[in-house]
């Protein structure tokens, strides 16, 4: 591991300035992903700026919704009674991720910024455009079980690993950011990028920009929401596919829905097409299947030496159908 400098500034503004002035600087929060990358040589920062005590650690009421401080630990967020009652999809997504130990460390601001678990990205002995732009994508034609079926490019087929981020994408969350030029707010669905020809950039954040809070708007239908994660073992595995969904149903008809998909793209995938297909549709498996198929019309399977990931397309359809069916029949 490369020697590096460590700083713990007095406040967030100082932290932002410290990172902004050094191109090789990085923020350190829970460290559950970055510290692994230091050991693996995937990340080689010259300076770590510790922000764990500089960002808010409270969850506060805000305009009928909640504002979650970036320093709130994943375990605390999942246990918050307001989150569990008003946004169960978020609590379920958090608890579906990682392990108890990791959730005790991981933060609200850090979790969405974790990087892909693509095995080639994490192995510095194989080319990777995300780690080393222009070196090529080793995943294409390799082991692709965990890789994308939506929005991938010739440069990168990685998926975003976060469960929490999928729930936030469904909930119309907004991200508060402090940067060298001041504050800004970004719709959560716009935080992450598709890879295009610049897969080294996971998000739209500029160097030195720090997430300070994530806001959840009032969303009454989210009281009837769920996160369904399908993975290769019962616990402690990244999603093959996942569905975050909230529905507003009455009289056998879907009045409104919020849906996001995980494990399928470079970003948490907000399923607008499926939502459009569902509005006004009957609460039947046929409707749900049609919605899934509308969303997945452009899905592209990746061949691979492990058999590839074509199974993800029917699996996601089945999972979305099952999730919506369960939600629609749930006691209101």
């Amino acid at each position: 591991m490369r020697p590096l400098d460590y700083r713990a500034p007095a406040d967030a503004a100082e932290a932002v300035a410290a990172v902004a002035e050094r191109p090789d600087a990085a923020f350190l929060a829970g460290g559950t992903n970055l510290v692994d990358h230091l050991k693996l040589g995937v990340a080689r920062p010259g300076l770590l700026v510790d922000v764990t005590s500089l960002v808010p650690v409270e969850i506060t009421e805000q305009g009928g919704g909640l504002s979650i401080g970036a320093g709130v630990r994943n375990a605390d967020l999942a246990a918050d009674p307001r989150v569990r009652r008003r946004y169960p999809v978020l609590a379920q997504a958090l608890l579906a991720g990682a392990s108890g130990q990791l959730r005790n460390m991981a933060t609200t601001g850090g979790n969405p910024l974790q990087r892909t678990r693509c095995a080639y990205f994490q192995d510095v002995s194989t080319p990777c455009n995300k780690r080393e732009p222009g070196s090529g994508c080793s995943a294409i034609g390799g082991v692709t079980r965990q890789h994308a079926i939506l929005g991938a490019s010739d440069a990168c087929i990685a998926t975003h690993p976060s469960d929490m981020a999928v729930a936030l994408a469904a909930l119309d969350a907004r991200v508060r950011v402090l940067g060298p030029g001041g504050d800004r707010t970004i719709p959560f669905v716009d935080l992450h990028r598709l890879p295009g020809d610049a897969p080294e950039r996971d998000t739209v954040l500029e160097h030195g920009e720090l997430i300070t809070a994530i806001d959840l708007p009032a969303l009454p239908m989210a009281a009837r929401s769920a996160y369904r994660k399908v993975r290769d073992r019962a616990s402690y595995a990244f999603a093959l596919v996942s569905v975050a969904a909230a529905v507003d149903v009455a009289g056998g008809v879907v009045r409104d829905a919020r849906i996001a998909l995980g494990g399928v793209a470079h970003k948490p995938w907000r399923a607008h097409r499926a939502e459009d297909a569902l509005r006004g549709a009957t609460t039947t498996d046929d409707s749900y299947r049609a919605a899934a198929e509308a969303e997945l019309a452009d899905a592209v399977a990746q061949p691979g030496v492990d058999g590839g990931n074509a199974f993800k397309i029917p699996l996601l359809t089945r999972t979305l159908v099952a999730t919506l069916r369960d939600l629609a029949t749930e006691e209101a």
């Binding site: 678990r117 095995a119 080639y120 994490q122 192995d123 002995s125 390799g142 082991v143 290769d232 073992r233 019962a234 616990s235 402690y236 595995a237 990244f238």
Partner: peptide
């Protein structure tokens, strides 16, 4: 080489299994 060469990707049964 073995691509899934760590215990995050080489799955063994977890307690929940």
């Amino acid at each position: 080489h073995v691509v899934n060469h760590d215990l995050a990707e080489y799955h063994i049964a977890s307690c929940a299994d």
